[in-house]
Amino acid sequence: MATLHDSLNDLLTVDGAMAAAVVDSGSGMLLGGAGSGIDLELAAAGNTEVVRAKLKTARSLGLADSIDDILITLSSQFHIIRPLASHPEVFIYYVLDRAKANLALARMKAKSVESDLAF
């Protein structure tokens, strides 16, 4: 089991990684963050709304599936939101430079870090 600090730093080892955070979607509170190029406090609060909206929509549709991740593609960045399987109210928020990052590797790294994260 890795510490929050170690897990966030591990995410930043991927080519193109800019920032990473762990967020409580119940409160929108940033539990930990690393990296630069984005206001992680503001991103935590805003992406909490994204997670809440997707969970509400899934419930409304009667979907029994859990969310593996939510991908937001911008012209210059990828944003990955990955709820923790062990604590779905907590999610990893991962920002990558689109020109430098390999999206498949970044998603695999987020999944790996999630499984090692001590919570």
Rank of each mutant, 00 (worst) to 15 (best):
M1S: 14
L4E: 11
H5P: 00
S7M: 03
L8C: 06
N9G: 00
D10V: 00
L11S: 02
T13G: 00
T13I: 04
V14K: 01
V14G: 00
M18K: 14
A21C: 10
V22W: 02
V23N: 01
D24V: 01
D24K: 07
D24T: 03
S25P: 00
S27C: 03
S27A: 09
G28W: 02
G32P: 02
G32A: 04
G33K: 02
A34I: 06
A34D: 06
G35L: 03
G35S: 06
G35M: 03
G37E: 09
G37Y: 08
G37P: 08
I38T: 10
L40M: 13
E41H: 10
E41T: 09
E41M: 07
E41N: 14
A43F: 12
A44W: 03
A44F: 04
A45S: 13
G46Y: 04
N47P: 07
N47G: 08
T48N: 05
V51D: 01
V51S: 01
V51R: 01
A53I: 04
L55H: 04
K56Y: 04
T57Y: 02
A58R: 13
A58F: 07
R59L: 10
R59G: 01
R59Y: 07
L61R: 08
L61D: 05
G62M: 11
G62Y: 09
L63T: 12
L63P: 00
A64F: 09
I67E: 08
D68A: 14
D68P: 01
D68H: 14
D69E: 14
I70F: 04
L71C: 10
L74V: 13
L74E: 13
S75E: 15
S75F: 12
S76Q: 15
Q77H: 15
Q77E: 15
Q77M: 12
Q77K: 15
H79K: 12
P83Y: 00
L84K: 02
A85T: 13
A85G: 06
P88Q: 03
P88Y: 03
V90K: 08
V90D: 00
F91E: 04
F91K: 05
Y93W: 12
Y93M: 08
Y94F: 15
V95K: 03
D97Y: 06
D97V: 07
R98Q: 13
R98N: 06
R98Y: 07
R98F: 07
A99I: 07
K100C: 00
A101Y: 04
N102L: 10
L103A: 04
A104L: 12
A104Y: 05
L105A: 10
A106F: 05
M108R: 13
M108C: 07
K111Y: 10
V113C: 06
V113S: 02
E114Q: 11
E114H: 05
L117N: 02
A118C: 12
F119P: 01
